[in-house]
């Protein structure tokens, strides 16, 4: 399965671009989408999900233009939006059957599939309760079940781990890894560690444009040899931040341990092993 995005642009008003001549090829595996707020991640996801139409450009799914024929991707799509809701007066079975019908699936096996998926997310005991009584984390799990309902070939997750506890996050990552063997999984998240642990490839976006798309290893190589740590007091830290690209800092009794990116290190600095987060900061702030 191959998703080719060719010169996609999304224009708002006369001058503002949500996406600008964006091109990317996505094949089976997990693609992690990273970028600061306003980078165009959600715009890209909405366009791929056929919710929004691009102002220009084409998207081909195995050669079929989904901009012209959106139903071709809708048949094989599983999409978890960042901010979704549910019908509060329906229970989990009713809601998921409804979503199933919307996705064009049904038959006698649907109920059983819903049951099996609800067991997988540990909601089977409360499946007959109205969704209006569910907590945020439980609703998120319902969202994940609806993604998997039609056995999709393309899965798009926008901030999927919101509401999940740390243990669930780990298990969810395992689930994504299992699914990605023969499917396209696009994962957008602000949490770099969510992507770092599982993405086969990472695409970093900024101001509606693709800065880089490559394997994690190659992206991390961008920052290799440029990540340092040093220690300083609070007053020096303020000055330091204006001169260097600081990734993080944390307090050590009366001083601060500062991690930063630079071509040439400051005095008394130690070279560190670069991570995806370092590479992301390096790519988006340079």
């Amino acid at each position: 399965m191959q998703l080719e995005i060719k010169n996609i642009s999304k224009k708002y008003g006369s001058n503002k671009f949500g996406l600008k001549e964006y091109s990317i090829n996505i094949s089976s595996g997990i693609l992690g989408l990273l970028g600061p707020n306003g980078a165009g991640k959600s715009t890209l996801i909405k366009i791929i999900s056929s919710i929004s139409k691009p102002t220009a450009g084409n998207i081909f799914l195995d050669g079929v233009d989904i901009v012209k024929n959106p139903n071709s991707i809708r048949k094989v799509l599983g999409y978890l939006p960042q901010d979704f809701g549910v019908y509060p007066n329906l229970n989990a079975y009713e809601f998921l059957e409804y979503i199933g019908a919307m996705k064009g699936i049904g038959g006698k096996g649907l109920r059983q599939r819903i049951e099996q998926l609800l067991e997988g997310v540990n909601l089977i005991d409360v499946a007959k309760n109205k969704l209006g009584t569910y907590s945020g984390g439980m609703k998120q799990r319902i969202g994940i079940v609806q993604v998997l309902l039609n056995d999709p070939k393309i899965l798009i997750f926008d901030e999927p781990t919101v509401g999940l506890d740390p243990e669930e996050r780990l298990r969810f990552r395992d689930l994504l890894s299992d699914l990605a063997s023969d499917r396209i999984v696009i994962l957008s998240s602000h949490i770099v560690s969510d992507i770092e642990s599982i993405a086969d490839e990472v695409a970093i976006m900024k101001k509606g444009e693709l800065i880089i798309k490559d394997s994690q290893e190659n992206i991390i190589n961008l920052a290799t040899g440029k990540v340092f740590e040093t220690t300083m007091d609070k007053i020096a830290l303020s000055q330091f931040k204006t001169n260097y690209n600081v990734v993080s800092s944390y307090r050590l009794q009366n001083e601060f341990r500062v991690r930063y990116i630079a071509e040439k290190p400051a005095e008394n600095s130690q070279l560190m092993t670069a991570t995806l987060e370092d590479a992301y900061i390096y790519a988006t702030k340079k």
Binding site: I105, R113, V121, N122, R171
Partner: peptide, 12 residues
């Protein structure tokens, strides 16, 4: 949630 869906055998 275990997110273990290996038992999901029912086809659509």
């Amino acid at each position: 949630a275990s997110f273990d869906i290996k038992k999901t055998t029912e086809s659509i």
